[in-house]
Write a protein that binds this DNA or RNA. Structure first.
Lengths: 335, 335
DNA sequence: CTGAAAGCGCTAACAT
DNA sequence: ATGTTAGCGCTTTCAG
């Protein structure tokens, strides 16, 4: 491994001068700089970030911890955050928490370990009870999903309002018996809980009573879950003419499941999801959904994190912003 | 930030003893260990990986560099590699290269910078001309995609054979005029080039001549590209009864595009993709594809990398393994 | 079983 | 404009 000293010796200067060149300090004579640069190239020198980090406490990298890397929604989120971070000359690395509370805490710990300058945590495992654990002295931004008064910056999704609008959209489209597919582990502050609240609120406003038989719980937010939910719904014998699935992935599975059972969408049943993942625009029929403005969320999350990193003021005066949303009406709810 | 010295002082021992406890060295009296552990908990101590790394040269983390995080195929790959790495007690971080040669080289550089113990690089930008740049002295495994005689371990996809089998499957299903949707930037060693070779080989064997009019090039492997390819194909006026898309994502777009144009799949045209992404099992109609055995690729890639890390023998006697494949026949090519 | 010394590669703060 | 000193937090080596 070639070090700064090797370069210094080769260029006939001190290590300090090499450091100055690397860090683009102004007071270096052009000729010297050239010579050092030349030596760096010849020796194929690369800075050792571990050593630099040990000294400066900065890595130039931020972490993004998501529940599942293999989920379109998080892929999209990752892409948006990478793009936004690049504007601030920050590198992004993504890691998976498996939606478990422990791993989310691990990610926090790793960040604190100074592997990253800060962490954007898309949490689903942590809840209001973990507020204290989030009270850390390094830059963290919580993204989307759950909502609670944490000690850190939080970019929230319009879960309740968005879900309400989605269901209201079904009502407007003429649905009177609307089913809900939600996550089994719902609490008041979880994605499921919040979107379910929106569902109930919309029905109440429309004067429709909630039919417990039309509420299906799934354990994971997967395509397979959507198919199973469709089967359960049809098997129940209950009539229904609309379904709100709390994620697009589930909704896409629902579309497939209903198709297999000979239920026509949107003629017999209208379907709407939540998240506006890219795939929803290309299914047959295309999927109506709620767009929570990923780009906005990514932008704000990175901005908040960058501010914390720059100011070193972690934990004081936590900000909370909620993105706007819009209902995207496509074929699955038309007619 | 609490350091090893703080813990040492608190526990009334030396920093060295704390280090021994952390690293589970055997020669520490139980009572001492308990005391140290207790202090670590009380002070909420976390090792500083930058410092440890500086000393040991190990981080316990491996990198996975993929062209695009927002692509189902890479999401799946990431999930499989994370799972496999966990078996070896290794952490995985994912970064995006944007399918550019420069960024792939950057990822290599970062890895060399000892941010990671090793790197799994899913390359599309690097080609045979870059062989020398891969001649690095730290653990690297090249995954899938392109194929060329590199100086590092390589886990390859069965691109040619798999594509050939896919097209042969269409022939068996009765197709006689088969279209191909491939990437515009194909070279002999690229994904497109290789899968195209399989396409041509299958047609030759079936005694069908390649119709250049039925070969559509797309610039990115996206759903939108698939839709556009369908439009081009139909607009050309050429008759065709089968389409091989070189990735499932394109194929899913093709399904949607054909649907919009009133072309029935599989009655009028049969479609097959490549990659076996989860979504293909849930589209309407479900998508036939080639399964390149992700799990195997992930397993071998991690194993090869771990061996290199352990032995420190980077660059000597590079291994090359190719995964097996199987054609998955679903609705889009049935009947 | 425990600890003292030394140094990993780099840079902040200060000379010169 | 360039160099000296010191030390980031940790662990390897070796001595007690």
């Amino acid at each position: 491994m070639v070090t700064i000293h090797d370069v210094a010796r080769h260029a006939g200067v001190s290590a300090m001068t090499v450091s100055h060149v690397i860090n683009e300090h102004p007071h270096v004579k052009d000729a010297t700089r050239e010579r050092v640069l030349q030596s760096m190239t010849e020796l194929d020198y690369r800075v050792n970030v571990a050593a630099r980090n040990l000294r400066t406490g900065r890595t130039g990298t931020i972490g993004l911890a998501v529940p599942e890397v293999n989920r379109p929604y998080y892929g999209q989120l990752g892409a948006a955050i990478i793009e936004e971070a690049a504007r601030h000359f920050l590198h992004v690395v993504i890691e998976q928490t498996g939606a478990s509370r422990e791993n989310e805490l691990d990610a926090l710990a790793l960040s604190r370990n100074r592997m990253y300058d800060g962490l954007i945590l898309s949490t689903v495992g942590l809840g209001p009870a973990d507020t204290d654990l989030l009270r850390v002295d390094y830059p963290v931004v919580i993204l989307g999903e759950r909502i609670f008064d944490g000690p850190v910056d939080h970019v929230a999704m319009p879960n309740v309002a968005g879900a309400k609008a989605a269901v209201a959209h079904l009502v407007e489209a003429g649905c009177t018996a609307i089913a809900l597919v939600e996550g089994v582990d719902f609490q008041e502050t979880s994605v499921s809980g919040l979107r379910m609240a929106g569902f109930e609120s919309a029905l109440a406003e429309a004067g429709i009573e909630v039919d417990p038989q039309l509420i299906i719980s799934v354990d994971v937010f997967s395509l397979a879950s959507g198919v199973r939910a469709a089967q359960q719904l049809v098997a129940s014998g209950r009539v229904f003419d609309g379904v709100f699935c709390i994620t697009d992935t589930i909704a896409l599975g629902m579309l497939r499941g209903l198709h297999e059972l000979g239920v026509r969408v949107p003629q017999d049943v209208k379907v709407i999801g939540f998240d506006n993942i890219e795939e929803g625009g290309y299914s047959v029929p295309s999927l109506s959904t709620v767009d929570p403005d990923h780009a906005f969320m990514a932008k704000r999350a990175v901005e908040l994190l960058v501010r914390r990193i720059a100011s070193g003021s972690s934990g004081v005066d936590p900000q909370e912003v909620t993105s706007a949303f819009r209902v995207v009406a496509r074929e699955s709810s038309s007619g």
